[in-house]
Amino acid sequence: MPLINDTGFIADSWVRVSEESTLFAEQIIIPFAQFEEAAAANIKKIGVHVANTVKPTELVQYFAKLDLISIDFPNFADGRGLSIARSIRKAGFIGELRAFGPLIADQYAYARSCGFDTIEVPEELAARQPEGQWKDAGKSLSLSYQRGYMHGKNILNQRSIHEAASRTGAV
């Protein structure tokens, strides 16, 4: 399915492996339940796909062995995946974090802020919302009010800098 990052629509170097198929590719995304099996099979890079009901704390012990975590979005209005992403980043995961499901372009910046690197959307949705819309939506709000999130220029931090600068007479 179409994959999006900051540069636009990109080729996917990962292969999603379902329960029945054999593990052959170098980089595979498997259901979380099959992780142990894949880890034993000597595969170069492993990613897991998790439901949005997963407890982020359960994943922490596997971080070192995972190059990708894909979080399921059953529909775009279900924001649970955003909190999971944020918790996973907070717990120190540095691999690729991918949102999987019918997210809309308007959510791109939010997903990035919460720690996602890529979004994998259904064909139908990508056809309706082509690359340009994702790029525009990603830039539409250049400022944010929440500290500690990753996207956009933070207003509170900017104010602190200004304030400190004006106190030392730098401005």
């Binding site: 775009f76 209005a77 279900d78 924001g79 955003l82 909190s83 944020r86 959510q107 910046a109 939010y110 997903a111 802020s113 919460c114 709000l141 944010s144 009010y145 929440q146 999130y149 996207h151």
Partner: peptide, 10 residues
């Protein structure tokens, strides 16, 4: 803080 909150808008 709540305006366009990336995590809590859905």
């Amino acid at each position: 803080w709540s305006s366009a909150h990336p995590e809590f808008s859905f």
